[in-house]
Nucleic acid binder design. Structure first.
Lengths: 334, 334
DNA sequence: CATGTAAATGTAAGCGCTTACATTTTGGGA
DNA sequence: TCCCAAAATGTAAGCGCTTACATTTACATG
């Protein structure tokens, strides 16, 4: 059932196990003849080094653990793409896990990764994420993305959600909306709260109320529900800030189904700028946060920290969302 | 630098390391008092078991290796979603790796996984994938998806690409196309070849030639190029089979940019039915292969095999694509 | 109270590898 | 030819854990 081990190879090549190890790993202090014999034996036996054992001996796994709320979908997929790219560039592998929006799952995912990874990259947008780091073994290099446990320690990457909410409100006001609505994310979500807060604050600065709010869960489906709700609302808004693009996509579909014109009847602005935002009808105005770059930069931050002997992670950073104006808020244009 | 070990816990609780292990793992042959002491010491020391060491001792990692051409994007992301779902249901973790369209990378990814996973799920649509299994340690449970090394052994999951190509041609013919074109995938890709072959055979059955072909690489970008090419072709086709949805999306954009009406000037049919196909303008006619189910079913096949003591994988299966007719081939409608 | 048995705990080997250190081999210079 | 440093190879400890087996403890029975 098990494959050949180094011991088998050593025996077949009639050398000590240490020499076999050296030969296989390409150390330079082995004679060519010995190396040849070992390599021959290895390929004859179809020997493949046992990564787990090697890691145990070297205390290095060359693997990074990645924990995201989900590991698929436009948004997370794009983060993973960034992580993957940066990891490949460094010869690192990634062990991914989805927490499915549940803090306990995130915690158990982290624990399961101990001893299998050199460090962990976690995105845990729960308001009470500090439980996560509390249960961690000390000394495990950790970088957090968009987690409420932000500023307490290094290695925190965050998005300026509050600022983004303000920009969204500002944009709607600028294009002339007088009655703005909001599709927010779940209240248990740290980021959703911040976006909402920024949106409200900017609106109130302009003397506007936000009478209509719909709470979604960041899924396309809930965005669709929101669209229905707003299409039928008695005091129908003329502009809506949807807290993420996936919901905005659902919203767009619902509004189309209800015969509401976007942007002329209702303008829509999303958040994230996921790839699909360029393909919707109409194309979606949104806030770009550099999803891909979040992936690459967070991986780099973590990997650099791991390479430091003291294992300390460098300072994180905060991302400022940038408005990408597309058709879904281009009122009057054609 | 390292965290607490079981030895530390045992010492702190003043018990033997074996007892500590039993207490931590919840075996029933430990006195309550001893267990309490151990658990207390463990939490005080913030002990988290070392997964790697445990795996080495038990010869079980509870992890599945997943190797896909890429680990992001609509198509692969959807497969991963399926895999993730099925894995979670069984308490398994997944170690993912992208081969980036390169067979050698796939091979090295597999080797890097040996000793870290209980089995491997690999999608390797290269015409010469047999190199992959040749280099593998025997006895490593393996399930292949859409790989040319199909029928030789159990655990092969494939798509009836040839049949799908035929369906695509049949559909275009049925809606009245007289001059059909094809955007194929790279010739090094096993699946692309089969889709093309099916498409051609069915066309020729109907007495049609396929004068215009454009070779893409499955990316949206190359689909866009294809769209430009066809829009300007002297003998412009009235229907095109694009070998995957991602390229079809790019194609749709290019045709729109060129002022070509889809479906009336040119009908477009894709392949895969990725989620985005429902959102394009016009919505995309395509062939559904149950991407999500490919993920769940392949994981189940592999996991069941691993649970067999002899580690043999059960028989695989072949998926028959199903036509999903949407607007991009609805000629004349509206 | 001696005794046998089951339950609780301890001892130590081993999972497959790396690596410090010990030992042997090699080869150039005197 | 002999000697010695450097190079090549071997020995063995250990990475953190599980687990077979040995030992001790607890307890009911005659």
């Amino acid at each position: 059932m098990r494959g050949a081990t180094l011991k088998d190879v050593a025996k077949a090549a009639d050398v000590s196990i240490a020499s076999a190890s050296r030969a296989i790993n390409g150390l330079d202090n082995v004679k060519e003849d010995l190396r040849r014999r070992v390599l021959e034996a290895a390929s004859k036996l179809r020997y493949v080094p046992h990564g787990g054992a090697r890691s145990l001996a070297t205390n290095r796994t060359n693997t990074i653990g990645v924990i995201l709320p989900d590991i698929y979908g436009e948004f997370f997929s794009e983060i993973i793409r960034g992580i993957d790219f940066a990891a490949r560039a460094r010869g690192l592998h990634i062990l991914v896990s989805g927490s499915h929006g549940d803090l306990q799952e995130a915690v158990s995912a982290v624990r399961a990764m101990v001893g299998r990874v050199d460090g962990i990259l976690v995105m845990s947008p729960f308001v009470d994420s500090q439980d996560l780091v509390a249960v961690l073994p000390l000394n495990l290099p950790l970088v957090t993305i968009s987690s409420s446990i932000g500023d307490e320690f290094n290695g925190a990457i965050s998005i300026d959600n509050y600022g983004g909410g303000q920009i969204a409100a500002g944009h709607l006001i600028e294009i002339g909306c007088k009655n703005i609505g909001h599709v927010c994310g779940p209240t248990s979500n740290f980021e959703a709260c911040e976006r909402k807060r920024g949106f409200f604050d900017r609106a109130s600065d302009a003397g506007l109320e936000v009478p209509n709010i719909f709470e979604g869960d960041f899924s396309e489906e809930s965005g669709y529900q929101a669209g229905i709700y707003f299409a039928k609302a008695k005091n129908r808004p003329d502009g809506i800030f949807v807290a993420n693009d996936m919901m905005a996509v659902g919203c767009l579909m619902a509004l189309a189904d209800q015969g509401v014109n976007v942007p002329n009847d209702i303008a829509i602005i999303g958040f994230d700028d996921i790839p699909i935002a360029r393909f919707t009808a109409p194309t979606l105005t949104t806030l770009n946060v550099g999803v891909y770059e979040i992936g690459t930069r967070s991986l780099d931050l973590l990997a650099n920290g791991i390479e430091n002997d003291d294992g300390t992670i460098g300072p994180g950073f905060k991302i400022e969302p940038e408005l990408v104006a597309r058709k879904s808020t281009a009122k009057g244009a054609n």
